[in-house]
């Protein structure tokens, strides 16, 4: 059996204008999951349920062996959580926050905290209200990282950060994973961040999980085929092809179940395969959201 740090089974939550619909999610220990969705897709609600801050109507949530939300106090002892809308106390200094968090977590690593202060270019004696957005995010991240949690849960950690700060943050996340007992879940609408550092990728849209795989499988299954079709031959519907673009002579097929046999099928039809392009995660995400919305609309 896989060692799972986070396990959702059929988790649902009903709101007046939004439903989270039977979410299944598995996050193996030692890996990093990128959780991708548009604004309002249900990323934050899912993460709040994971943290026990919102109670699900249905389904089981298990985090680090604790059942949520009942065991949240024990579970949160091992979780570092930072969300984009989280604020620290404006009137207090970063040093005060560090001392406060340190008094709670016995695993707090002061040496690492000082190192992060330096790396993130933060001044501990500065009051939080004087910090820029990027500095606030980094301060919150420092407080979460230095307690050395077994699970890091980050809701949009890179949103609104400048490129340098983003790079620093991603670098620290990767450094966490040097220890294979530790696990990260982070949500983002920036697919580039997710594509680079994630092992697992989960797409969510309108409260439903669209896809959840390891990244290499994900990227391998999606291809764009550029064909040249002789005149008078119409392209039949091919299994696994979810979108046909381009012109009738120069069609571009998008598939989410690519395999080499597909090429010979095209060639047997008389088409020349001009190119087989791999797709970026962003292209894959946009295409699968559109495809899902179209099939739902029909």
């Amino acid at each position: 059996m896989k060692d799972l740090t986070v396990h959702f089974e059929g988790v649902s939550k009903r709101y007046p204008h939004f439903d989270l619909d039977s979410i299944d999610l598995e996050l193996p220990t030692g890996s990093i999951m990128g959780f991708i969705g548009a604004n309002g897709a249900g990323k934050s609600t899912t993460i709040r349920i994971l943290m026990g801050l919102v109670h699900q109507d249905k389904g089981q949530v298990n985090v680090l062996g604790h059942s949520m939300p009942a065991d949240q106090a024990a579970a949160k002892f091992d979780i570092g959580f930072v969300s984009e809308d989280m604020r620290l106390y404006g009137a207090a200094t970063l040093r005060w926050h560090m001392e406060f968090v340190r008094s709670i977590y016995p695993l707090w690593d002061q040496l690492y905290a000082e190192k992060l202060l330096h790396r993130f270019d933060l001044k501990p004696q500065q009051k939080i209200k004087g910090l820029s957005h990027g500095q606030r995010v980094k301060a919150a991240l420092l407080l979460a990282l230095a307690r050395r949690p077994r699970l890091l849960v980050l809701d949009e950690p890179t949103t609104g950060l400048d490129p340098v700060a983003r790079h620093e943050v991603l670098g620290e996340l990767m450094a966490v994973l040097a220890d294979e007992e530790r696990t990260i879940l982070f949500s983002s609408h920036n697919t580039q961040d997710v594509e680079q550092i994630s092992d697992q990728i989960t797409f969510i849209d309108r409260g439903k999980i669209l896809d959840s795989y390891d990244k290499e499988t994900f990227l391998d299954r999606w291809r764009r085929l550029r064909l040249v079709l002789p005149e008078s031959i119409a392209l039949p519907h091919l299994p696994g092809v979810i979108d046909v673009g381009g012109s009738s002579r120069l069609p571009v097929l998008t598939t989410n179940r690519f395999e080499p046999a597909m090429l010979s099928v095209c060639q047997d039809l008389g088409a020349t395969v001009q190119a087989v392009d791999s797709m970026t995660l962003e292209e894959i995400f946009v295409t699968s959201v559109q495809y899902r919305r179209e099939t739902l609309a029909v």
Binding site: G30, M174, L177, A178, I197, K215
Partner: peptide
């Protein structure tokens, strides 16, 4: 694998592959 992943800031699974 993990060392290289951390230093390249690329996911473990990519380096593993």
């Amino acid at each position: 694998i993990r060392q290289l992943a951390v230093s390249l800031q690329v996911s473990v699974i990519t380096v593993k592959r």
